[in-house]
């Protein structure tokens, strides 16, 4: 069972997590472009943890469902949570002077994207990518 977990606390962890995700994606036989899509989504989600929640974790794992093979990203933090998810998912919305492209961009790079957040408790994201 292909599964890797990264603790995310600082900038170096962002690089490690995306390298790790890229390796898993490659091992699963994802195309080069898909590997970059997945690694970029991880980069965005990991940076959000460092910026907004201070620490959290990212798990990347293989999915097998019937004929389909894919990859799942599980992101979890116990940070402040997101008050308005719809707003946070909007292109250009940033509370930190960023481009506001991280969450909406990561959603578009993956096939499915689910985000749950509780104020004061944290945020979890589950995103999947299926092999073409």
């Amino acid at each position: 069972m292909l599964e890797r977990r990264s603790s995310i606390e600082n900038e170096l962890d962002i690089i490690a997590a995306r390298r790790c995700a890229k390796e898993v994606a490659k091992e699963l036989g994802f195309s080069t472009v898909d590997q970059v899509r997945i690694a970029t989504a991880i980069s965005e989600l990991a940076r959000n943890i460092v910026l907004y929640a201070k620490e959290g974790s990212i798990v990347v794992r293989a999915l097998c469902e019937g004929e389909r093979e894919g990859l799942e990203i599980l992101v979890a933090d116990k940070g402040p949570g997101i008050p308005n998810i719809e707003l946070a998912m909007t292109d250009g919305y940033s509370t930190a002077g960023g481009l506001g492209a991280g969450l909406p961009g990561a959603r578009r790079l993956m096939d499915t994207f689910r985000i749950d957040s509780q104020l004061g408790q944290g945020t979890t994201i589950v995103a999947r990518k299926w092999k073409a």
């Binding site: 472009v33 970059v36 899509r37 292109d91 909406p104 961009g105 990561a106 578009r108």
Partner: peptide
């Protein structure tokens, strides 16, 4: 790289 360029476009950047 082409893969990076494609990814940026898809992100809306």
């Amino acid at each position: 790289s082409p893969a990076v360029a494609i990814t940026l476009v898809e992100m809306g950047l």
